[in-house]
Amino acid sequence: MDSTLPETSEKKEEFLDSLANGLQLLRIYATGVASVTVQEAAEQLDVTRAASRRILLTLEKLGYVRQDGRQFSPTPKVMDLGYAYFASLSLPRLVRPVMQDVARALGETCSLGVLDREHVVFLAREEAPKLLKLDLTIGSRLPAYAHSLGRALLSTLDDEALDQYLENAELKRLTPYTTVSKTALRKLIRQVRSDGYSISVSELVDGFAGVAVPLRNHEGKVVAGLSVSMVLGARSPDELRRQHLPALQRAAATILDSMPRSSI
């Protein structure tokens, strides 16, 4: 009977309360909770405020949550742990029928993504039946500066946040056409901010292009971005704008109309 005690004691010694509480906190987000305060996390985890604060700040340092005032919310990096970011939220489910319509109407791949520090992270994709396409899946990460969706989202940052992004971003020449000057990139992003849409041509992958718009909720807050990507062919940026932008803008309006005013 006593032979089980050493094993139980050993297992208890190997159990890390701090790790368990950190994982439990991420599971709280998976239930649909959008954000928590230090006090709320302490109550949910049954720990002290000091312990709750350490857990949240550790997760923030690792990039799994972000702080906005007193609120801590999850970032797309939780996908790296196998968690389905937004799985319990409504946005991907809400936009999928609209994305399917866009993909069918344009014959191109339609994507939904969010900005996570220096990357754009894909939350949903609807593929068109094309032989040539980028091999991307939900959770894929691409450099924001070289992607139409990334630039559309970067354009929604305020000047201070954009300055911080440009200060930290490492701009690599991915193709002969990639913008690697931070001064030039800032000018492009400000133009996207003014236009309300982004077009990228051969900057991420030579021969591929993309058109993107930000998605806002009823309060005007940007919740994601919507894009279509395609093989460029002989089309000019102006042709891409005429052929694809109206459908994206209609899709963004449709998504806004279907959003509950109290969510996202």
Rank of each mutant, 00 (worst) to 15 (best):
D2E: 11
D2M: 04
E7P: 02
T8W: 05
S9N: 13
K12Y: 14
E13G: 10
E13M: 06
S18T: 11
A20Q: 11
A20M: 06
G22W: 07
R27F: 13
A30G: 10
V33M: 08
S35D: 13
T37K: 12
V38H: 01
E40C: 04
R49G: 08
A51I: 09
A51P: 05
A51S: 09
S52W: 03
R54C: 11
R54V: 10
I55H: 08
L56T: 07
L56N: 12
L57H: 03
E60C: 11
L62S: 14
G63E: 05
G63A: 02
D68V: 08
D68I: 11
R70I: 00
F72E: 02
T75S: 10
T75G: 06
V78Y: 08
D80W: 10
Y83R: 13
F86E: 04
S88M: 04
S88W: 10
L89Y: 09
P92Y: 11
L94R: 00
R96T: 12
R96M: 03
V98L: 02
Q100Y: 04
Q100S: 15
D101S: 11
V102G: 01
A103I: 01
L106H: 12
G107Q: 02
G107P: 02
C110N: 00
S111D: 13
L112M: 00
D116W: 15
H119W: 15
V120T: 13
V120Q: 09
F122D: 15
L123R: 11
A124G: 13
P129N: 01
L131R: 07
L134T: 03
L134A: 05
T137Q: 13
G139D: 14
S140M: 09
R141S: 06
P143K: 04
A144P: 00
G150P: 01
A152Q: 14
L153E: 08
L154M: 08
S155I: 12
D158S: 02
L162N: 00
D163A: 08
N168G: 03
A169K: 02
L171K: 02
K172L: 12
K172V: 10
R173C: 08
L174A: 08
T183G: 12
A184E: 14
L185H: 01
I189Q: 00
Q191I: 13
V192K: 03
V192L: 05
S194C: 09
D195I: 13
D195H: 12
S198A: 11
I199E: 12
S200H: 04
S200P: 03
S202V: 11
S202W: 14
L204S: 00
D206K: 09
F208E: 03
A209M: 07
A209Q: 02
A212S: 00
R216A: 11
G220W: 01
S227K: 01
V228D: 10
M230C: 11
V231K: 07
A234L: 08
A234I: 12
A234W: 08
S236G: 06
D238F: 14
D238Q: 14
D238Y: 15
R242T: 07
Q243R: 08
Q243W: 06
L245E: 06
Q249L: 08
Q249V: 12
R250V: 05
A252M: 00
D257K: 15
S258N: 12
R261N: 07
R261Y: 04
S263P: 05
